[in-house]
Design a protein around this nucleic acid. Structure first.
Lengths: 201, 201
DNA sequence: GGCGATAAGTACCGGCCGGTACGGAAGGCG
DNA sequence: CGCCTTCCGTACCGGCCGGTACTTATCGCC
């Protein structure tokens, strides 16, 4: 991000962009795109609006970068889940990960990518679209993982990867709604238990 | 609502409150509580702000009434689902109903009670709380239905009603997120098919 | 120290937010 | 008809929204 050109000229930045972005991410997580005002964001980030605009562009770009950070941080479990040796293990890792992230103590209930901007008031259309894309892509990657599993004989021959992936993602999304509703970690883990009982084959 | 006192005095109302509320409900459905501005609402309702305030109180009360209308209209399927003869039929009715309502053509994708206000920016805390309450109550009623089913031998003796109800509600919530994501009715029905395969007993 | 470059802080922008004051319009009733 | 009551339309409120112009502070380099 910071050019880090051989020679850095000018007054150096007075804050840590990574930490500021982390804090912004949490505000978006808690309040959603619309609900997070610039005042909320910059206050949490500990900087002024001008600094925010200089460092991140505008609110929309800040959100995009916060979402990226979310993917690399709290939602990293998706990446590692896909690397699990079996489709079943991948699924359970995703669901357990969703539970853990949606209920991490000290953080906020729910999932940034679900709470962020479900409805689409005109003003936040682009944030909405980014999240739709994010969610669909997550499903697509799981589908691809399942497709490979069928090819490898890890899943029964008749299994439809797309359908199974959509089912798993549906449960994952539902989990984050339940978490936002105040349902606790243990209860959500029971839901995962129940879901895993239904595994094909 | 309208007093309808034996003698109606004064200038009569120039619009149909039911239809206005219906239209307001749809705006909330599409945009969520925060995303629906008074201008959006009154424009869709075809009345002025003053008329709206006189007839419904304020934005928050309007939302509450719109939610009630949603319960009595698009979400009526929950009521009838609970009256199904078996727990399995009730579950399938809820899930199919969620699919149908979340994807009714001409209306908007998703479910008012999920899209309405998932995150809680300070300004919409009360709308948020109302929806949390709504969702939890829906789950509680399903749980009670399951509890009866266990008592009646309709569900296997070991079944945990609370757990099963939460699972079903999780899938239902997930369905509405998927619908908001643009997933179509047929695909969602496949998810219901898949879910029903897992029925205990 | 002086200069160029970048960041930080202040004060402000037009616009929309939810909500309201007020005067006129439209009905029943004597 | 006048009168009372209720509703409608306009014009407006303070406050916050996302975003910005301009000044001041802090750096590297010569």
């Amino acid at each position: 991000m910071s050019g880090a050109r051989s020679t850095a000229i000018g007054r150096p930045r007075g804050f840590d962009t990574d930490e500021a972005l982390e804090r912004a991410m949490r505000v978006f997580w808690q309040r959603g795109y619309e609900g997070a005002s610039l005042t909320d964001l910059t206050t949490a980030m500990g900087i002024t609006k001008t600094s925010m605009y200089a460092a991140f562009g505008n609110k929309e770009e800040l959100f995009r970068k916060a979402l990226q950070r979310y993917s690399d941080g709290p939602a990293r479990y998706i990446e590692s889940a896909l690397a699990e040796p079996t489709a079943r293990a991948a699924t359970e890792a995703i669901l357990r990960g969703a539970v853990r992230t949606s209920t991490s103590p000290g953080d906020f209930a729910g999932c940034l990518t679900v709470q962020g901007a479900l409805p689409s008031s005109d003003g936040c259309r682009s944030a909405h679209d980014v999240l739709v894309e994010w969610r669909n892509q997550a499903g697509a990657r799981l589908e691809q993982r399942f497709r490979r599993a069928v090819r490898d004989g890890d899943l029964p021959r008749g299994t439809k990867p797309k359908r199974l992936a959509r089912f798993v993602m549906t449960v994952a999304f539902g989990i984050s709604v339940q978490a936002a509703n105040g349902v606790g970690r243990d209860t959500l883990d029971e839901i995962v238990d129940h879901t895993m009982l239904t595994w094909p084959g």
